[in-house]
Design a protein around this nucleic acid. Structure first.
Lengths: 216, 216
DNA sequence: ATGAATATGAAACATTTGTTTCATTTATGG
DNA sequence: CCATAAATGAAACAAATGTTTCATATTCAT
């Protein structure tokens, strides 16, 4: 059994952090191994030593934060009172359970989490998802949210529920991707970086979108 | 003044089409000049001859369909009766004016348009937008939609309007990006390719999202 | 402190990258 | 058909790519 030295573990993490940043900025193909190792202050061979390949490094970057995010969402989902007769409040609970962990990690989780959210947003619009194990790791907990919505709205069509989740997901990812589009569209008045300010409108929009769509 | 031969023009278009496809699939950095020229059946030097550089080819790919798309949207927007006392109908008109052209190009515009929509969706989540002239070309007509919404809802905050447009845009781009996420989440029952089926829920979701968000 | 396991440094590897060069071929207006 | 401009083919370029090798240095349980 391979035992890792403590100092080596530090370098591994530093490489993961640096790769996370650069992959978020320029994508998998836009970043070379030497870009990462130079930025991390190590030799280029160390990536192949620690991660075997560039592809594998990328997967480890993605994997690293899947579990914490999925868990935070599921814990929040478990806290929602599904028996509450006010369905709008229930939907808000479900929506927040999904969105809030990601937004809050992006805001308070440090640079690593912020970069990670950007990276995941990029992956979200690519087929890459389905060709890789990335998709399945996120799907397993995403399906739970879809199931809950189905139970809450038994008269709505399955398709409309799936669509709602897609729109919820799209708005969330687009919001955390930090593309600065809102900045240019508002002449710098509003910033896509200011997640705290966008959070509430996002909830409102998605909740109303869902309530209006599942209505039979 | 340089005069282009007819046959050469064909090759130029073929290169643009091939580049559009490959860029949509793997992004700018994921595609090499030789990937494109091999797929197009020409020599690798022809890209530098016809487009000077890879970067410039990419810009021409993006530019090629900006105008038609923006124009279709603005024409549809001009057709909306803003005096209609039923505000939900007006919002639907505005929303459709923005979304419908893109969806319909993606459905009926041939492979080129479909690839283009995927490509634009990728660009949508990147800072790339703002670093380039790409952004400005799309912004100029997007702002018109924001302005119309502001007029329609004078009591809503500017910020909420900008947020609404962001969510509208995100759902639209995510929907046309063909990432197959809906396929895996529904075990193959529903397909992200089936835009025709997603179109109506999308309108419903966005209209209700907007109506609920701008309400003061 | 020592020795075996682990990690690093430095260099090299074969490909692939975007681009340039230039002789040859092709197309078009006169 | 001719002359001239435009386009192509084939090769070459330096630089960058991911990965491997191996000698040296570092770590840490004993």
């Amino acid at each position: 059994m391979k035992v890792r030295y403590k100092k080596s573990e530090e370098i591994r993490e530093r490489l993961l952090d640096t790769a996370e940043l650069l992959f978020a900025q320029r994508g998998f193909f836009g970043v070379s191994i030497r870009d990462i190792t130079d930025a991390a202050g190590v030799r280029s061979a160390s990536i192949n030593y620690h991660f075997d390949s560039k592809q594998n490094l990328f997967m480890e970057v993605v994997d690293r934060r899947v579990e914490p995010l999925a868990e935070a969402r599921l814990i929040a989902l478990a806290d929602v009172d599904l028996e509450n007769p006010n369905r709008e409040e229930v939907v808000l609970g479900i929506v927040r359970a999904f969105i809030e962990p990601m937004i809050h990690y992006a805001i308070n989780g440090g640079a690593g989490w912020k970069n990670y959210c950007t990276l995941i947003a990029h992956l979200g619009v690519q087929k890459f998802w389905t060709d890789n194990t990335v998709s399945s790791k996120y799907d397993s907990h995403a399906i739970k949210f879809i199931e809950v919505l189905k139970i809450l709205f038994p008269d709505a069509s399955d398709h409309s529920i799936h669509c709602c989740f897609q729109f919820l997901l799209s708005a969330t990812l687009y919001t955390v991707c930090d593309n600065r589009r809102m900045d240019t569209l508002s002449n710098g008045v509003y910033k896509s970086k200011d997640l705290r300010k966008i959070e509430k409108p996002l909830y409102k929009f998605v909740v109303n979108g869902i309530m209006g769509t599942v209505r039979v």
